[in-house]
Simulated scan of single mutants.
Amino acid sequence: MKRWNIFRKLSIKELILYGLIFINLIILGLVIFFFQKTINNSPDLVFPPDVRGKDLKEATDILAKNNFKVVIEGVLIDKNKDPLVILDQNPLNTKIPSGSIISLWINMPQIVKIPNVIQKDTGEARNILEKLGLRVEVVNGENGYIVRQIPESDFFIEKGASIVLYSYVSQEQTFTSSTTETYTGGQ
């Protein structure tokens, strides 16, 4: 009974105040408990690997091994970089949950539309295609005109790729005279 005597000496206001303090301590303890549970259940935050400058396959392999998902956000063209190289990524240098999506921007190769060079002189066809940055291989000789091209016109091709031209060389063009007589008009 002596224990309860302490409470008899306190006023009602003091009992309510101590009761509220006790209730607040219990609530604070529960908040801390559930907050720790939430923190422990959240995924680990990690820095994503920097894949800038790597080719697309290598970059996606690295990110997949680190449990990240990849989205190609955009295409950029940088003449000084190799095609299909990662030029930028987001996020970078920021801790994110493992398994997050990484956005990549890739460098696309420079492409050109193949013109039709059929019926053109071999030299003219070669000049047209080489000015576009294409490599040219001529089959059947350089002195004729083009009768076939592979790939055909109106396709898109990467700069630096090869085009095969098939030429037709007439018999008159292959004939070389061993004489040096001057033509006098039939006299």
Rank of each mutant, 00 (worst) to 15 (best):
I6L: 09
L10W: 01
S11F: 05
S11I: 07
K13Q: 14
K13G: 15
K13T: 14
E14M: 14
E14D: 11
L15P: 02
L15R: 10
L15G: 03
L15K: 13
I16Q: 07
I16D: 06
L17V: 07
L17Q: 07
L20N: 13
I21G: 06
F22H: 07
F22V: 11
N24E: 11
L25W: 05
I27S: 06
G29T: 14
G29M: 12
G29V: 13
F33P: 12
F33K: 14
F34Y: 15
F34A: 15
F35A: 13
Q36C: 14
Q36S: 14
K37R: 14
T38G: 12
I39S: 10
N40F: 10
N40T: 14
S42P: 08
S42R: 13
D44G: 12
D44I: 15
L45A: 15
V46C: 06
P48G: 02
P48Q: 04
P48F: 00
P49S: 04
P49F: 01
D50S: 04
V51C: 09
R52F: 03
K54L: 05
K54F: 02
K54I: 02
D55Y: 02
E58W: 04
E58L: 08
T60F: 06
D61P: 08
I62Q: 12
I62Y: 10
I62P: 10
I62A: 12
L63Y: 08
L63P: 09
K65T: 12
N66H: 07
F68L: 03
F68A: 01
K69T: 06
V71P: 09
I72P: 03
I72D: 04
E73W: 00
L76A: 15
I77C: 08
D78N: 09
D78Q: 06
D78H: 04
K79R: 15
K79M: 13
N80V: 09
D82A: 15
L84I: 06
L84F: 07
V85T: 14
V85Q: 10
V85D: 09
I86F: 01
L87K: 02
L87Y: 03
D88Q: 00
D88R: 03
Q89G: 01
Q89S: 03
N90P: 04
P91R: 05
P91H: 03
P91K: 04
L92E: 06
T94K: 10
K95R: 09
I96N: 01
P97F: 02
G99A: 06
S100G: 13
S100L: 10
I101R: 02
I102Q: 00
S103F: 08
L104H: 00
L104W: 00
W105Y: 06
M108C: 10
M108D: 12
P109M: 00
P109N: 02
P109Y: 00
K113H: 15
K113Q: 15
I114M: 07
P115E: 09
N116G: 09
N116M: 13
V117E: 00
V117I: 02
I118M: 08
Q119V: 13
K120G: 06
K120N: 08
D121C: 01
T122F: 01
T122S: 05
